[in-house]
């Protein structure tokens, strides 16, 4: 059963909003699955396309980016830039035989602790349903 599968998930969060939302989720003692490891960056605009692809090469099962709400970026518009980069990386993943759903962009403001926790719950569930990286038929075919 897939319930045995515990995916490894990377979350890249900007330090102004989403990393703060993750802190707030803690302060509010909201519980979410322990599958996620968070890397802090100043702004999601700083996230390189390689930061989105390399984790899959390493065997990470899913990656999500969480930035400030659109139009609320601390650095003007970094989250828009990242949004486009994530969309582009999804297309690349698809060509490489990785389900694009394994990569996602979210937006959580620093007051959105509950929403951040929900993001973690939903995304973990999504990856559990997808199964381990390169487990699906589509992936096997492409590979």
């Amino acid at each position: 059963m897939s319930s045995e599968f515990e995916p490894k998930i990377l979350a890249i969060c900007c330090q102004w909003c989403s990393y703060a939302a993750a802190d707030l989720a803690g302060t509010m003692r909201l519980q979410y699955p322990a599958n996620i490891r968070i890397v802090r960056v100043p702004c999601t605009g700083r996230i390189d396309i390689l930061h989105l692809l390399k984790p899959f090469e390493e065997g990470v099962d899913g990656v999500f980016v969480s930035g400030c709400l659109l139009d609320d970026c601390h650095y003007v518009n970094g989250n828009y830039k990242c949004t486009r980069r994530v969309a582009y990386a999804k297309r690349l993943l698809e060509q490489l035989g990785v389900e694009p759903e394994r990569l996602e962009m979210y937006y959580n403001s620093s007051a959105m602790g509950p929403q951040f926790a929900q993001t973690c719950i939903d995304f973990t569930q999504r990856i559990k349903e997808l199964g381990p990286l390169f487990s699906s038929d589509a992936a096997c075919d492409a590979a």
């Binding site: 890397v39 100043p42 605009g45 700083r46 390189d48 390399k54 970094g78 830039k81 990242c82």
Partner: peptide, 28 residues
């Protein structure tokens, strides 16, 4: 913010304190 670092095609800019190597080290 590091936006320049992520946008360069030749890897010329880097962000001190959050360099490509720093972030990649955490990922790998």
């Amino acid at each position: 913010c590091g936006t320049c670092v992520a946008s360069c095609r030749s890897g010329a800019p880097n962000l001190r304190g959050f360099s490509n190597q720093d972030v990649m080290a955490q990922i790998t």
